[in-house]
Design a protein around this nucleic acid. Structure first.
Lengths: 230, 230
DNA sequence: ACAAAAGTGTTCGCTTTACACCCATGT
DNA sequence: ACATGGGTGTAAAGCGAACACTTTTGT
């Protein structure tokens, strides 16, 4: 029994980065095909003996030079049957994050160009990639409220105000500094360091780091980490 | 540029049903292959011009005769590279529900047999299907807390105690009757009918029905429907 | 001394929780 | 009359929301 299914399996990566109060997504310029010269999500076809998540890591690395820190499966988009006239493409989208240290781009031959685009001014992308980014953003916003995913977008040591700004940027609303700090610290997975952030002006802030070992313990104990704040 | 990817795309359906304080999953007996005679989730290969969700509906119907009411994408399982020696299979799993009226089975030639299995006594299944069911169950439990998904598992008119029992069965814990009723009714998407449930004994309970139009309005208004109860 | 950002506590109101008795029906 | 399940209110505690002044540093 041999199948003659004419479907090809691809992956796409929605990779978020954060810098200077702005949330960014990693995009590449299409080099071939009907969507040539449009910007698109990095991604490509899965190799026969390659795990899906490894395909995403590989494609993102090849196309942009960026090494992703965190990745999770988002959704499988497979209903746009006529997207490619030669065969049907079903694409498993993964969303991920990189911390600011790893945002530098090293364009390769696979892409004409690669760039970080601010979520605030997103161009019209190839295929249904604008829609996919919206889905990823919804997931990111949702996860901020019950998983410590925001830390992946910051340096390993960061002042509290950065975390606060990150949440405000992504959720697009004001947050009360006092309540936010109290709530986050009450979980107990943030560790105080003895270093300080040298600001341009104003009082220097203590640097904190995320203690992932402690987090896993709390997670194991089934403690609710829901983050609600004013 | 012709691809010679040797991957085939399948779908699996994790279909939940509920009756008599028991949560059930729909399974079929494998008729061919290395896993012959083991029980497995209904599913099969996607046709070239068929949407993923339609492939699930079709396969479940063909293999069990059951028409699914609600379906949503769960996860794509694609890392078990050696599951089938002839080619790699990547499977998009959908989880769904049927109400008690539609739980009757009409086995067809595609499956040796089809049956509802209680979650409480699940046999060892083919492939990684036990794991997939766990993932689906987690999602179902999670969704109970913020989406009115439970109603899909009941008849369109139901006494309040059925809803309560459903939640207790799926979440596997006690719930305070008074607080639960207050909370659910406060959302305003349940409609009282003038019919009564004729119990074997005891005072007959009023029948309610889920008003999905009202629910969509509330959803639109962005009102939080988080369900927490003692 | 002034500007800029960090650090910190208390009060109020709402939601969740805990809890027990009466009601309607069938036998 | 008794057994069975349905229907209901109130008080206490905990959590989220609102809110402003002091501290440290650079200029």
């Amino acid at each position: 029994m041999k199948l003659k299914q004419n479907i090809n399996l691809a992956v796409d990566g929605i990779i978020f980065g954060y810098q200077d109060h702005q949330l960014y997504v990693l995009l590449i310029k299409q080099k071939y095909g009907s969507q040539k010269d449009k910007w698109a999500l990095p991604g490509g076809f899965v190799l026969d003996d390659e795990k899906l998540i490894d395909a995403v890591k590989r494609e993102v690395k090849e196309e942009t030079g960026v090494k992703v820190q965190y990745l999770e499966q988002l959704y499988t988009f497979g209903d746009d049957i006529d997207r490619d006239p030669r065969f049907r493409v079903v694409s498993v989208a993964y969303f991920g994050t990189v911390n600011p240290k790893h945002m530098e781009l090293k364009p390769t031959t696979d892409a004409l160009d690669a760039q970080w685009f601010s979520i605030a001014k997103m161009p019209k992308l190839a295929f249904d990639h604008n829609k996919i980014i919206e889905v990823a953003l919804d997931r990111l916003r949702g996860k901020l409220n019950y998983q410590p995913i925001g830390f992946n977008l910051l340096d390993s040591k960061f002042p509290f105000s950065d975390l606060e700004q990150l949440y405000m940027t992504i959720l697009d609303r004001d947050i009360d500094r006092r309540n936010f700090r109290k709530k986050i610290l009450s979980f107990g997975f943030l560790e105080e360091t003895d270093e300080f952030h040298k600001a341009g002006s104003g009082r220097p802030g203590k640097l904190f780091k995320f203690n992932s070992k402690k987090y896993k313990e709390l997670e194991q104990e089934g403690i609710s980490l829901e983050i609600k704040f004013a």
